[in-house]
C-alpha cells in the first residue's frame, strides 16, 4: 500500500488518483481534478467510496468553493516547488472558509517546505514512493516559535509575548 505523511504520522494511503484519460471511476476513495470532478458529477453521486478534488495554484477559489467544502479532502498541486500559490490557497481554505477536512500537498513541493506548508494548513503530504517519510517528517519541526498569525496559530507573537 502506498504511504502518506499525515498529521505527522506515516500512514497507508488508500486514495487512488484518477488518470487524466480515465473514462470510468475505480472503486474506493478517489482523488480527481476539478474538471474530472465536473465531468463525472453524475457517476459520483452513486459512488460508494470517498471523493477528493485536486486544485491548481491559479484557481480562483472564490468562484467554486461552496461544493468543495463538503468534501473530506482537497489536494493542492504544486507544479514546481518554487510556485508558492498553494500556500495562499491553503490559508484561504482554513482561515476564510473554515475547511476542516484534509488538505493534501501533491506535486513538486519539497521536504524543506514542510514546516511552512503545515503552518498554512496542509496536514497531509504525498511524496514520491521512494521517500523515507519518517526521515522527511523531521522537517515539520524546523521551528518551535513564530511571529505571524497562520492556520495553526491564531495569535501573532505580539499578542503572546
Amino acid at each position: 500500500m502506498p504511504q502518506l505523511l499525515k498529521d505527522k504520522r506515516v500512514i497507508d494511503d488508500a486514495w487512488t488518483l484518477l488518470d487524466t484519460d480515465s473514462q470510468s471511476l475505480p472503486d474506493g476513495d478517489i482523488l480527481l481534478t476539478y474538471s474530472q470532478w465536473q465531468t463525472f458529477s453524475e457517476q459520483l453521486e452513486s459512488h460508494s467510496g470517498q471523493i477528493g478534488v485536486v486544485i491548481e495554484g491559479n484557481t480562483e477559489i472564490e468562484d467554486i468553493i461552496e461544493p468543495l467544502l463538503k468534501l473530506p479532502l482537497i489536494a493542492i498541486n504544486f507544479p514546481k516547488f518554487a510556485d508558492g500559490r498553494g500556500f495562499s490557497l491553503a490559508t484561504l481554505l482554513r482561515e476564510r472558509y473554515n475547511f476542516n477536512g484534509e488538505i493534501r500537498a501533491v506535486g513538486g513541493f519539497i521536504r524543506d517546505q514542510l514546516y511552512l506548508l503545515s503552518r498554512c494548513g496542509f496536514n497531509a503530504f504525498k511524496f514520491s514512493e521512494d521517500t523515507d517519510l519518517s526521515e522527511v517528517a523531521k522537517s515539520l519541526e524546523d521551528f518551535s516559535e513564530t511571529y505571524q498569525v497562520s492556520a495553526d496559530q491564531e495569535k501573532p507573537l505580539f499578542r503572546r509575548r
Binding site: 508558492g84 500556500f87 511552512l116 498554512c120 513564530t146 511571529y147 505571524q148 507573537l157 505580539f158
Partner: peptide, 13 residues
Amino acid sequence: RQWSTLHPEFAFL
C-alpha cells in the same frame, strides 16, 4: 521585519 520573517505564506513569491 518581524511580520515578514519566515512568513509562512509568502516564502515563494
